[in-house]
Design a protein around this nucleic acid. Structure first.
Length: 195
DNA sequence: GTACAGATTGAG
DNA sequence: TCAATCTGTACT
């Protein structure tokens, strides 16, 4: 799943569910927006030119690990490493559609707010999504909590025509790379970030 | 030790 | 349009 090319994974993640166990309840959201970062060639990647720092080592991990870091001193960014060990590629999760709670205080319609919604912080750095007991991915949701929207919650049924491809956000400094169409989101979904 | 950028956000 | 806010990194 996570070992394929980053662009493929970024696409495949759309419509999947993130489940986060927190205080005896499962916070859930459907992924509606992702971006691909493909180092070392990608200037917008933290691993541009193969740079290895303390901050970005998780990006080099084998697919399925969490790469989380702080930007602007305030906001966490949730990434999932992709491809094999040693390839600094990852997918940034930019927005979720809240499933539970359905009307959260913080709406996860942006990468910073998404981490607030899921109660994520540095303690998740390098977490293995395939093994973790506190956060994992699901392709569909069978829980009662999501039953009212069961029809929309078929995470594995995203059609190609429902995916919009655009250039990435907030990386104008990356020149040519900023124009790459490596941002994916679900057409018409109200929780996709703006700008 | 200091300087400074930064994959954002919400208020104005 | 713009400032808040702070960690990691690259310097001295």
């Amino acid at each position: 799943m996570y070992l394929q090319s980053t662009l493929t994974v970024a696409r495949n993640l759309l419509g999947k569910f993130i489940v986060r166990k927190w205080r005896n309840q499962n916070i859930m959201g459907k992924i509606v927006e992702t971006e691909a970062y493909i180092g070392p060639k990608d200037k917008a990647s933290h691993a541009f030119r193969g740079k290895i720092t303390k901050r970005n080592t998780a990006e080099y991990m084998t697919g399925g690990h969490i790469y989380i870091y702080l930007v602007y001193g305030m906001y966490w960014q949730l990434n999932i490493s992709t491809n094999i060990k040693g390839k600094p590629e990852c997918v940034l999760i930019r927005a979720l559609e809240p499933i539970f709670p359905k009307r959260p205080k913080v709406i996860p319609n942006g990468p910073g707010k998404l981490c607030k919604f899921l109660k994520l912080n540095k303690s998740f750095y390098g977490e293995d999504l395939t093994k973790s007991k506190r956060i994992w991915l699901a392709t569909s949701i069978s829980s009662r909590q999501a039953s009212s929207k069961r029809r929309e919650n078929r995470g594995d049924r995203i059609k190609k025509s429902e995916i919009v491809v655009k250039k990435r956000i907030g990386i104008d400094y990356a020149g040519e790379w900023a124009k790459k169409p490596w941002r994916f989101y679900l057409k018409g979904n109200q929780f996709v970030s703006k700008k």
